[in-house]
Design a protein around this nucleic acid. Structure first.
Lengths: 259, 259
DNA sequence: CGCTACGTTGAGAACAATCAACCCCGGTGG
DNA sequence: CCACCGGGGTTGATTGTTCTCAACGTAGCG
């Protein structure tokens, strides 16, 4: 087993920005709602909401910016807020007693963050690169959900969706080889980019190899070696380490599906 | 990587009982609702519902019984029904192209089954032992959810709960050693038994070692060897293969948490 | 009584982890 | 301007955990 500790994580509490900055544009009237013009609305739980609901959302939201490597919240902390990522990239993870880390996923603009079963967050969240988030106080969001059942419906959809993604990841972690894991990851990232209208090829990997390892159940070195392997098989091309050109998607799909 | 195929799964479609048997007690009036007297109601999504809601539920539910090894539904099949397990044990799983299997979990009485993100089931479900289930047509259940928001709230709670369980399992699959995996599994099963008021020690394992392997990301042999290891460490005792006495829960917890 | 499914144990192989070295690049400061 | 430094990435050599293949034991059942 891999018991390597995460020595790289420079995660001082100082990196966190717990208090919201006052929103710019506070002088405009409620009808001039930033939520209405939100660039990621169509991707997020806010899509399909009525103007009235957006205005309500707008009254409780605050914006936060977190620097690369900074913490958004820690595992075990009281789950006081919910978030929507509006810019950057966020990793959510859990740590084992000796420092081993499992990353559950990487979140991009439009993704929801902070569902909690109890009173505490079940995982930690950190910014992979400088990131922006909309922050909703849990209490107020609950009230809003009570008023607008559509919001609850969207949250249920989000949760079920995340459940399916989690199951995909369980298959990957439990039953796939290193090569299959990396091929799956590359295709998954490409498809996610497509969903949000971003370029699908080359695939952009803003996170480090260590992050990818902790996401795929591998070591940094194994991720690197497997990338090299795919390169020698002429399935991918790497100009820079974080831009992966997919050269034979068909073949990659086959590998990813386990044939 | 482990590319062993699941040769053991005898899963002929003949084992399935797709059509509900007529419910016994059909002659009694709506006020005499079986849902009202359901033994697993307090454990399931039906807990906390009002009599009126239970009566409605009762009008759409049918009971099914599935023999050990039989299929309840297959991955990719249209998701026409939702289920609540009322007796026995059910495994949910996904297969890779070459037959490798990942089991997502084992469901016991009170557990909900069949949440689907799209129109098809994202996983297959089979009975581990002879099992009983309540079956709800998806369409009618949706209508009921529209009428009784409390049901939607319970489903959201269920989904979030499953999400946390899935994350626990990702940590196990991605970052734990064989010994840590088995220790975690034994403790998890013991705690689940406690939640439903069943005996917590010895832990009952109605599924085979192959099932456990596909659940833990190990082979049959590794599960067996690891059980033997825990036995030699005097942490467990095995009288019969499917009854595990936990002898040192403290130590098992330490191992499971990765210290 | 023999068949079959399931569980256990043994021997050897394989894949990924570990430990270590090195490269590259950007930032910093002399 | 360039030497130094540190983080990140790659590659090499070796180790080790788990898998694979195989044999055998046991229990249930026709």
């Amino acid at each position: 087993m891999n018991k390597n500790r995460d020595t790289s994580s420079l995660n001082p509490a100082a990196d966190r920005l717990p208090e919201a900055q006052p929103r710019p544009g506070g002088s405009c009237s409620p009808s001039c709602s930033p939520c209405e013009t939100c660039a990621v609305r169509s991707l997020s739980i806010c899509s399909g909401l009525q103007i009235e609901e957006l205005v309500h959302l707008d009254t409780i939201v605050s914006k936060v910016r977190v620097r690369a490597g900074g913490s958004i919240f820690d595992e075990g902390e009281p789950a006081t807020h919910r978030y929507v990522v509006t810019g950057g990239c966020v990793r959510i993870y859990r740590l084992l007693g000796d420092g081993r880390r499992q990353i559950f996923g990487f979140l991009f603009p439009g993704d929801f963050l902070g569902l909690a079963v109890g009173i505490d967050y079940a995982y930690g969240a950190e910014a992979v690169v400088d990131s922006d988030l909309c922050r909703f106080p849990h209490r107020e969001l609950e009230d809003l959900i009570g008023q607008f059942p559509e919001l609850e419906r969207r949250l249920l959809g989000t949760a079920i969706n995340e459940l399916v993604v989690a199951q995909d990841q369980m298959v990957l972690l439990g039953r796939k080889s290193a090569e299959e894991k990396v091929a799956t990851m590359l295709l998954t990232f490409s498809k996610r980019a497509e969903q949000r209208g971003m370029p699908t090829n080359p695939v952009s990997l803003p996170m480090t190899r260590a992050d990818l390892g902790d996401y795929l159940g591998l070591t940094t070195e194994s991720v690197s070696r497997t990338m090299t392997l795919l390169k020698t098989e002429a399935l991918i091309r790497l100009e820079v380490a974080n831009q992966v050109h997919l050269l034979d998607i068909e073949k990659l799909e086959e590998i990813a599906q386990g044939f």
